[in-house]
Amino acid sequence: MAPRRAWLTHVLLILGVIAFALPIWIVLIGSTHDAATIGRGEVPLLPGGHALENYRTAWGAGAAATAGIGVGSMLWNSMLMAVLVAVGKITISFASAYAVVFFRFPGRMLAFWSIFITLMLPVEVRIFPTFKVVSDLGLVNTYAGLIIPLIASATATLLFRQFFMTIPDEFVEAAKMDGAGPLRFLWDVVLPLSRTNMAALFVILFVYGWNQYLWPLLVTTTADVETVVIGMVKMIGSEANTEWHIVMATCVLSLLPPVAVVVLMQRWFVKGLTETEK
Protein backbone atom coordinates (compact mmCIF):
# COMPACT_ATOMS: atom_id res chain seq x y z
CA MET A 1 0.00 0.00 0.00
CA ALA A 2 1.22 3.49 -0.79
CA PRO A 3 2.57 5.18 2.38
CA ARG A 4 0.33 8.22 1.99
CA ARG A 5 -2.81 6.04 2.02
CA ALA A 6 -1.61 4.01 4.99
CA TRP A 7 -1.13 7.27 6.86
CA LEU A 8 -4.70 8.38 6.12
CA THR A 9 -6.05 4.99 7.20
CA HIS A 10 -4.30 5.30 10.55
CA VAL A 11 -5.61 8.81 11.12
CA LEU A 12 -9.21 7.78 10.42
CA LEU A 13 -8.97 4.67 12.58
CA ILE A 14 -7.44 6.62 15.45
CA LEU A 15 -10.27 9.16 15.18
CA GLY A 16 -12.73 6.25 15.38
CA VAL A 17 -10.99 4.82 18.43
CA ILE A 18 -11.01 8.26 20.10
CA ALA A 19 -14.71 8.71 19.41
CA PHE A 20 -15.33 5.65 21.59
CA ALA A 21 -12.58 6.13 24.13
CA LEU A 22 -13.05 9.86 24.86
CA PRO A 23 -16.35 9.59 26.76
CA ILE A 24 -14.89 6.78 28.85
CA TRP A 25 -11.77 8.82 29.56
CA ILE A 26 -13.87 11.78 30.69
CA VAL A 27 -15.86 9.60 33.05
CA LEU A 28 -12.73 7.92 34.37
CA ILE A 29 -11.16 11.32 35.08
CA GLY A 30 -14.38 12.76 36.45
CA SER A 31 -14.65 9.94 38.96
CA THR A 32 -11.39 11.06 40.56
CA HIS A 33 -12.50 14.62 41.31
CA ASP A 34 -14.73 16.03 44.01
CA ALA A 35 -18.33 17.13 43.52
CA ALA A 36 -17.55 20.85 43.48
CA THR A 37 -15.04 20.63 40.62
CA ILE A 38 -17.47 18.73 38.41
CA GLY A 39 -20.44 20.84 39.46
CA ARG A 40 -18.66 24.01 38.35
CA GLY A 41 -18.21 22.34 34.98
CA GLU A 42 -14.45 22.34 35.31
CA VAL A 43 -13.81 18.70 34.50
CA PRO A 44 -10.08 18.63 33.90
CA LEU A 45 -8.43 16.21 31.50
CA LEU A 46 -6.08 14.80 34.12
CA PRO A 47 -6.89 12.70 37.19
CA GLY A 48 -7.54 14.33 40.52
CA GLY A 49 -6.97 13.09 44.05
CA HIS A 50 -10.45 11.97 45.12
CA ALA A 51 -10.55 8.58 43.41
CA LEU A 52 -10.38 6.49 46.57
CA GLU A 53 -13.11 8.30 48.52
CA ASN A 54 -15.44 8.56 45.50
CA TYR A 55 -15.27 4.86 44.79
CA ARG A 56 -15.54 3.97 48.45
CA THR A 57 -18.65 6.13 48.84
CA ALA A 58 -20.22 4.79 45.65
CA TRP A 59 -19.46 1.19 46.57
CA GLY A 60 -20.74 1.35 50.13
CA ALA A 61 -23.35 4.10 50.33
CA GLY A 62 -24.31 5.01 46.76
CA ALA A 63 -25.89 8.39 46.14
CA ALA A 64 -28.70 10.09 48.01
CA ALA A 65 -31.06 9.17 45.18
CA THR A 66 -30.53 5.47 45.78
CA ALA A 67 -31.37 5.77 49.46
CA GLY A 68 -28.13 4.46 50.83
CA ILE A 69 -28.01 1.31 48.75
CA GLY A 70 -24.41 0.99 47.64
CA VAL A 71 -23.21 0.20 44.15
CA GLY A 72 -21.55 -2.91 45.55
CA SER A 73 -24.89 -4.58 46.11
CA MET A 74 -26.23 -3.35 42.75
CA LEU A 75 -23.21 -4.85 41.02
CA TRP A 76 -23.89 -8.12 42.79
CA ASN A 77 -27.50 -8.05 41.50
CA SER A 78 -26.34 -7.29 37.96
CA MET A 79 -23.73 -10.03 38.13
CA LEU A 80 -26.26 -12.55 39.40
CA MET A 81 -28.72 -11.55 36.70
CA ALA A 82 -26.18 -11.63 33.86
CA VAL A 83 -24.67 -14.98 34.86
CA LEU A 84 -27.99 -16.69 35.55
CA VAL A 85 -29.59 -15.38 32.34
CA ALA A 86 -26.59 -16.59 30.33
CA VAL A 87 -26.27 -19.99 32.02
CA GLY A 88 -30.05 -20.48 32.10
CA LYS A 89 -30.51 -19.66 28.43
CA ILE A 90 -27.61 -21.89 27.41
CA THR A 91 -28.86 -24.80 29.52
CA ILE A 92 -32.49 -24.87 28.44
CA SER A 93 -31.64 -24.10 24.80
CA PHE A 94 -29.07 -26.86 24.74
CA ALA A 95 -31.56 -29.34 26.20
CA SER A 96 -34.42 -28.43 23.89
CA ALA A 97 -32.22 -28.40 20.77
CA TYR A 98 -30.90 -31.84 21.75
CA ALA A 99 -34.44 -33.18 22.05
CA VAL A 100 -35.49 -31.74 18.70
CA VAL A 101 -32.44 -32.97 16.78
CA PHE A 102 -31.66 -36.38 18.26
CA PHE A 103 -35.18 -37.76 18.74
CA ARG A 104 -38.29 -38.42 16.69
CA PHE A 105 -41.54 -37.92 18.54
CA PRO A 106 -44.97 -36.62 17.71
CA GLY A 107 -45.22 -32.84 18.06
CA ARG A 108 -41.51 -32.38 17.49
CA MET A 109 -41.91 -29.77 14.78
CA LEU A 110 -44.69 -28.04 16.70
CA ALA A 111 -42.34 -27.71 19.68
CA PHE A 112 -39.59 -26.38 17.46
CA TRP A 113 -41.77 -23.80 15.74
CA SER A 114 -43.29 -22.56 18.95
CA ILE A 115 -39.79 -21.83 20.22
CA PHE A 116 -38.78 -20.32 16.88
CA ILE A 117 -41.72 -17.93 16.72
CA THR A 118 -40.70 -16.23 19.98
CA LEU A 119 -38.07 -14.45 17.88
CA MET A 120 -40.91 -12.18 16.89
CA LEU A 121 -41.95 -11.32 20.45
CA PRO A 122 -39.20 -9.22 22.03
CA VAL A 123 -39.80 -8.42 25.68
CA GLU A 124 -40.42 -4.75 24.92
CA VAL A 125 -43.49 -5.63 22.88
CA ARG A 126 -45.27 -7.62 25.57
CA ILE A 127 -44.04 -5.80 28.66
CA PHE A 128 -47.26 -5.15 30.53
CA PRO A 129 -48.96 -8.50 30.04
CA THR A 130 -45.67 -10.19 30.98
CA PHE A 131 -45.42 -7.96 34.01
CA LYS A 132 -48.96 -8.95 34.96
CA VAL A 133 -48.10 -12.65 34.72
CA VAL A 134 -45.02 -12.10 36.87
CA SER A 135 -46.99 -10.15 39.47
CA ASP A 136 -49.80 -12.75 39.49
CA LEU A 137 -47.14 -15.33 40.26
CA GLY A 138 -45.92 -13.12 43.11
CA LEU A 139 -42.50 -12.71 41.56
CA VAL A 140 -42.21 -8.91 41.54
CA ASN A 141 -39.03 -7.78 43.30
CA THR A 142 -37.52 -11.24 43.27
CA TYR A 143 -34.53 -12.55 41.40
CA ALA A 144 -36.78 -15.20 39.85
CA GLY A 145 -39.08 -12.55 38.37
CA LEU A 146 -36.11 -10.60 37.12
CA ILE A 147 -34.41 -13.56 35.47
CA ILE A 148 -36.78 -16.37 34.44
CA PRO A 149 -38.89 -14.43 31.89
CA LEU A 150 -35.69 -13.53 30.01
CA ILE A 151 -34.39 -17.07 29.87
CA ALA A 152 -36.33 -18.50 26.92
CA SER A 153 -34.23 -17.98 23.83
CA ALA A 154 -35.00 -18.84 20.24
CA THR A 155 -31.59 -17.65 19.04
CA ALA A 156 -29.58 -19.97 21.27
CA THR A 157 -31.86 -22.92 20.45
CA LEU A 158 -31.42 -22.24 16.73
CA LEU A 159 -27.65 -22.05 17.08
CA PHE A 160 -27.42 -25.34 18.96
CA ARG A 161 -29.80 -27.03 16.52
CA GLN A 162 -27.70 -25.87 13.59
CA PHE A 163 -24.54 -27.13 15.28
CA PHE A 164 -26.06 -30.52 16.27
CA MET A 165 -27.04 -31.09 12.65
CA THR A 166 -23.35 -31.06 11.70
CA ILE A 167 -22.44 -33.88 14.12
CA PRO A 168 -21.93 -36.93 11.86
CA ASP A 169 -24.44 -39.79 12.00
CA GLU A 170 -21.52 -42.17 12.54
CA PHE A 171 -21.01 -40.71 16.02
CA VAL A 172 -24.57 -41.61 16.98
CA GLU A 173 -24.27 -45.08 15.43
CA ALA A 174 -20.98 -45.73 17.20
CA ALA A 175 -22.44 -44.60 20.49
CA LYS A 176 -25.46 -46.87 20.04
CA MET A 177 -23.24 -49.81 19.13
CA ASP A 178 -21.25 -49.28 22.30
CA GLY A 179 -24.48 -49.35 24.22
CA ALA A 180 -24.51 -45.65 25.15
CA GLY A 181 -27.93 -44.18 25.80
CA PRO A 182 -29.05 -40.69 24.78
CA LEU A 183 -28.03 -39.08 28.07
CA ARG A 184 -24.59 -40.64 27.97
CA PHE A 185 -24.17 -39.46 24.36
CA LEU A 186 -25.26 -35.96 25.38
CA TRP A 187 -22.79 -35.85 28.24
CA ASP A 188 -19.75 -37.53 26.69
CA VAL A 189 -19.94 -36.48 23.04
CA VAL A 190 -22.26 -33.55 22.32
CA LEU A 191 -21.43 -31.45 25.36
CA PRO A 192 -17.64 -31.46 24.86
CA LEU A 193 -18.09 -30.70 21.15
CA SER A 194 -20.30 -27.69 21.96
CA ARG A 195 -17.84 -25.97 24.27
CA THR A 196 -16.78 -23.24 21.81
CA ASN A 197 -20.38 -22.42 20.94
CA MET A 198 -21.26 -22.22 24.61
CA ALA A 199 -18.37 -19.86 25.34
CA ALA A 200 -19.42 -17.54 22.54
CA LEU A 201 -23.04 -17.60 23.65
CA PHE A 202 -21.98 -16.92 27.20
CA VAL A 203 -20.32 -13.64 26.20
CA ILE A 204 -23.28 -12.47 24.13
CA LEU A 205 -25.86 -13.43 26.75
CA PHE A 206 -23.84 -12.09 29.66
CA VAL A 207 -23.75 -8.68 27.98
CA TYR A 208 -27.45 -9.02 27.14
CA GLY A 209 -28.34 -9.79 30.75
CA TRP A 210 -26.11 -7.11 32.22
CA ASN A 211 -27.45 -4.42 29.89
CA GLN A 212 -31.17 -5.08 30.40
CA TYR A 213 -33.07 -1.90 31.18
CA LEU A 214 -36.82 -1.91 30.57
CA TRP A 215 -37.54 -5.24 32.24
CA PRO A 216 -35.66 -4.59 35.52
CA LEU A 217 -37.16 -1.10 35.57
CA LEU A 218 -40.62 -2.67 35.67
CA VAL A 219 -40.02 -5.67 37.87
CA THR A 220 -37.84 -4.15 40.57
CA THR A 221 -39.34 -1.43 42.72
CA THR A 222 -37.25 -2.02 45.82
CA ALA A 223 -33.57 -1.21 45.95
CA ASP A 224 -32.40 -4.61 47.18
CA VAL A 225 -32.87 -6.28 43.78
CA GLU A 226 -31.96 -3.24 41.69
CA THR A 227 -29.33 -3.62 38.97
CA VAL A 228 -26.47 -1.19 38.55
CA VAL A 229 -27.64 0.22 35.20
CA ILE A 230 -31.03 1.14 36.69
CA GLY A 231 -29.44 2.46 39.87
CA MET A 232 -27.10 4.72 37.95
CA VAL A 233 -29.87 6.26 35.83
CA LYS A 234 -31.89 6.85 39.01
CA MET A 235 -28.95 8.80 40.44
CA ILE A 236 -29.32 11.35 37.63
CA GLY A 237 -33.08 11.51 38.08
CA SER A 238 -33.09 14.66 40.17
CA GLU A 239 -31.20 17.12 37.97
CA ALA A 240 -30.67 19.81 40.60
CA ASN A 241 -28.59 17.94 43.14
CA THR A 242 -27.03 15.17 41.11
CA GLU A 243 -23.87 13.92 42.78
CA TRP A 244 -21.89 13.76 39.57
CA HIS A 245 -18.71 12.37 41.10
CA ILE A 246 -20.63 9.39 42.48
CA VAL A 247 -22.50 8.88 39.21
CA MET A 248 -19.21 8.83 37.34
CA ALA A 249 -17.64 6.30 39.70
CA THR A 250 -20.77 4.16 39.37
CA CYS A 251 -20.61 4.46 35.60
CA VAL A 252 -17.03 3.15 35.56
CA LEU A 253 -17.93 0.27 37.88
CA SER A 254 -20.97 -0.65 35.78
CA LEU A 255 -18.88 -0.76 32.59
CA LEU A 256 -16.00 -2.88 33.84
CA PRO A 257 -17.54 -6.38 34.03
CA PRO A 258 -19.18 -6.56 30.56
CA VAL A 259 -16.20 -4.87 28.89
CA ALA A 260 -13.83 -7.31 30.61
CA VAL A 261 -15.90 -10.29 29.44
CA VAL A 262 -15.97 -9.04 25.85
CA VAL A 263 -12.28 -8.17 25.66
CA LEU A 264 -11.02 -11.32 27.40
CA MET A 265 -13.22 -13.62 25.33
CA GLN A 266 -13.01 -11.59 22.11
CA ARG A 267 -12.02 -14.43 19.82
CA TRP A 268 -14.96 -16.68 20.75
CA PHE A 269 -17.32 -13.79 20.97
CA VAL A 270 -16.76 -12.48 17.43
CA LYS A 271 -17.06 -15.97 15.98
CA GLY A 272 -20.18 -16.66 17.99
CA LEU A 273 -21.89 -13.37 17.24
CA THR A 274 -21.44 -13.53 13.49
CA GLU A 275 -22.61 -17.15 13.42
CA THR A 276 -25.49 -16.84 15.87
CA GLU A 277 -27.42 -13.98 14.48
CA LYS A 278 -27.44 -14.93 10.84
Binding site: L13, G16, V17, F20, A21, L22, P23, I24, I26, V27, G30, V43, V207, W210, N211, Y213, V229, I230, M232, V233, I236, W244, V247, M248, C251, S254, L255, P258, V259, V261, V262, V263, Q266, V270
Partner: peptide, 22 residues
Protein backbone atom coordinates in the same frame (compact mmCIF):
# COMPACT_ATOMS: atom_id res chain seq x y z
CA UNK B 1 -10.05 -4.17 16.02
CA UNK B 2 -10.06 -4.75 19.77
CA UNK B 3 -10.40 -1.01 20.40
CA UNK B 4 -13.42 -0.84 18.11
CA UNK B 5 -15.09 -4.05 19.30
CA UNK B 6 -15.21 -3.42 23.04
CA UNK B 7 -17.98 -0.75 22.91
CA UNK B 8 -20.33 -3.66 22.14
CA UNK B 9 -20.38 -4.21 25.90
CA UNK B 10 -21.80 -0.76 26.70
CA UNK B 11 -25.44 -0.79 27.80
CA UNK B 12 -27.76 1.65 25.98
CA UNK B 13 -28.56 3.42 29.24
CA UNK B 14 -24.86 3.68 30.07
CA UNK B 15 -24.20 5.15 26.61
CA UNK B 16 -26.79 7.80 27.42
CA UNK B 17 -25.10 8.63 30.70
CA UNK B 18 -21.73 8.95 28.94
CA UNK B 19 -23.30 11.39 26.49
CA UNK B 20 -24.79 13.40 29.32
CA UNK B 21 -21.30 13.81 30.74
CA UNK B 22 -20.14 15.16 27.38
Amino acid sequence: RTLLIWPYAIAPAVAAVLWIFL
